[in-house]
Design a protein around this nucleic acid. Structure first.
Length: 275
DNA sequence: CGCAGTGTTTTTGC
DNA sequence: AGCAAAAACACTGC
């Protein structure tokens, strides 16, 4: 459940389902998930506290707690939250269980265990570097054409640049391909080679694609690792134009979609629409 | 110092 | 059987 649209969908789902609920008991089954605190400290900070709301920056999801502390979660490749109605017989790969009022259990599962959870104590406490150094959030008001243009001066391949979380926070491999298709730009183009018009098209394509994906609840791929909090799939995969569509026709021009490697990661593009 | 490239976490499914 | 998969950090060498 990794990219911005999936994290934002989880944030909205959890906000609706958890707001005002009190955490009664915490069970951390896989302590390595928690990166910056002891299991004891984590339990003591959470147990008895209400969840006041949720937040998001890039691909980080925040659960805001009564008293000023917060939980920051990064799902990496396969992390996700779901609600469960019983304490036992938890599904495989469940690594954290938070008992809420009303015999509801907020569970975190993560097949590959790449995900990370941080305890943010609030107040004067400094955020971990990986959160503090995040770049512009493409759905935030700080994401302006001027700010975006300032990031695009280097000779790096534009797709790699879109994936750099310390520049722009939230775009991952699926949406980078979709955004570049929408903007009509090849993924391997050096950022510094883009014209003013191309920069402007790319700037507009980023929130357009991401917002549409959020409205569809994110992308659930074949393996169904990403599911919403209630277990239902997202539907933006139906609207993918190039991602994982090698050999299929471009929906606009009919040309065959190609796959290439950019910085060792699969990239999908239309050789006719993207210059 | 920046940048590119490699290796690392781990499990699953094609 | 081998490899690739939504991520991103640590590390090397130039």
């Amino acid at each position: 459940m990794p990219e911005l649209p999936e994290v934002e969908t989880a944030r909205r789902d959890l906000n609706r389902l958890l707001k005002g609920k009190r955490i009664q008991k915490v069970r951390l089954l896989h302590p390595a998930l928690l990166r910056n605190a002891t299991t004891e400290e984590f339990r003591e900070s959470l147990e008895g506290k209400r969840i006041l709301g949720t937040g998001r920056r890039g691909k980080y999801l925040f659960l805001l707690l009564e008293g000023g502390a917060a939980l920051a979660v990064h799902f990496k490749m396969t992390g996700r939250f779901f609600l469960f109605k019983q304490e036992n017989d938890l599904p495989r790969h469940t690594h954290l269980v938070m008992a809420l009022e009303g015999k509801t259990y907020l569970c975190y599962s993560d097949i590959r265990k790449f995900g990370r959870i941080y305890l943010l104590k609030g107040g004067e406490e400094k955020e971990p570097d990986e959160i503090r150094l995040l770049g512009l959030d493409p759905l935030g008001e700080e994401f302006t054409l001027e700010a975006f243009r300032d990031l695009t001066g280097s000779g790096k391949e534009i797709k790699s640049l879109l994936l750099e979380q310390h520049l722009i926070a939230g775009i991952g491999n699926i949406y980078a391909s979709e955004i570049l298709w929408r903007a009509g730009i090849r993924p391997e183009r050096p950022a510094s080679s883009l014209s003013g018009d191309e920069i402007a098209r790319l700037f507009r394509a980023i929130p357009e694609i991401l917002k549409t994906a959020v409205a569809s609840g994110g992308s659930t791929l074949r393996d169904r690792t990403y599911l919403r909090v209630d277990g239902t799939p997202g539907s933006y995969q139906r609207f993918h134009k190039v991602y994982y569509r090698t050999g299929l026709p471009c929906p606009v021009c009919g040309e065959t979609i190609e796959k290439s490697l950019v910085a060792k990661r699969s990239s999908f593009f239309c050789p006719r629409c993207q210059k």
